[in-house]
Design a protein around this nucleic acid. Structure first.
Lengths: 204, 204
DNA sequence: GTCTATAGCGGGATAGAC
DNA sequence: GTCTATCCCGCTATAGAC
């Protein structure tokens, strides 16, 4: 059954993302992944040929998800403050639905920065979107309609405020004793509060 | 010579921090570390008994460094805005001098969140410092001297803005083509601009 | 497609000579 | 203290029965 096969593959990809994230590429064993996905070890190689190929598939999927959501939120011609809201909302929303992805991506950034960087650099629409956003900021600073800020730093700050809570989540939950429910509520609030914070920081 | 031994040990610890950070705990091999430190493989075990013990020593050292710098900057009775400046300045300054530590710590947070979390939870001075800071924010909100903000979110934002550029650094450098010098200059600027950004976001 | 068994290799740790 | 040689385990990947 083609459907059966596809659903088994998707199940493996889903749990493998989690195992790779929690243990790192080398730390995650094919035995771990097989056990978590409740399939035989040999089946993993039957479906995915190799550990590296399985990892690449997951990386590709994760990148595509982020890419599509962000292009939708960020690309159109909107006023600056609306873009800031749309960006943080899209980012936070995507990661609420896919909580393993931020740490998965950050592992990869740390251990193989060129991999993701090249995918971004080689992607013209992304680079244009970033340039347009920075130009928009520079123009508003020039026109005196927002406080003077470095446009790259503002982009960095927006990204930091949106992403950081997800990568720090495992520890924040332990230290401050958040339940899943409470931490989820915090993240929901941030879909609006991050943009409010950033806009307050730069508006006159 | 006791000094010779101590300096060899320190050299190993220094390069091992880098190798563990770049490759992760499992990905880093004792052979990698020996090669990078220019010592024989057997010497590593002679000095540190095991890979795990070497890792623990590095973790302990990294934690202590952050702990001491932050306690100095954050503990005294200062007005809120001064604390915000002192906090971000101390954090960023420490990581400029020790650029591998943020990613090292974040690897550990991802793969073993309870380890660092327990060290923080069990440390009364830290927890008191955090509580005091949050109270201070709540009181100012109550008194109407700053905009209404959730005190935990403000703490989280301050941390995010200070730390995120360091953990994203490897990729940011590749994507935006920063030289070490240019990225260093950006980080230097952030020693003051992060506090300014946060203060602008909450002041009336 | 699914399983068991195993080949083959890389890595942590140590024995033992110097 | 320093080195070489090696033990031994655990992992990826695959052969081959069903």
């Amino acid at each position: 059954m083609e459907n059966r096969r596809a659903s088994t593959e998707n199940e493996i990809i889903k749990v493998a993302l989690k195992v790779f994230t929690e243990k790192g590429y080398k730390g995650a064993t094919m035995r771990d992944i097989a056990k978590a996905a409740k399939v035989n070890l040999a089946m993993l190689n039957y479906y995915f040929r190799s550990k590296e190929n399985l990892f690449d598939i997951i990386f590709e999927k994760s990148f595509l998800l982020i890419y599509e959501k962000l292009m939708g939120a960020f690309s159109s011609k909107k006023p600056l403050f609306e873009k800031i809201s749309a960006f943080s909302n899209a980012y936070i929303d995507t990661f609420i639905d896919n909580p393993a992805i931020p740490n998965f991506i950050f592992n990869e950034i740390t251990h193989n920065p060129a991999h993701l960087a090249n995918k971004i650099k080689d992607n013209q629409p992304i680079m244009e979107m970033i340039n347009t956003f920075q130009q928009q900021i520079d123009e508003e600073v020039e026109a005196g309609t927002i406080k003077p800020v470095n446009s790259f730093e503002l982009l960095l700050n927006l990204l930091a405020l949106s992403v950081f809570p997800f990568i720090a989540k495992p520890m924040l939950k332990e230290v401050f004793g958040f339940s899943d429910l409470n931490f989820g509520a915090l993240l929901e609030r941030r879909k609006t509060s991050v943009a409010r914070f950033v806009i307050n920081a730069i508006k006159l």
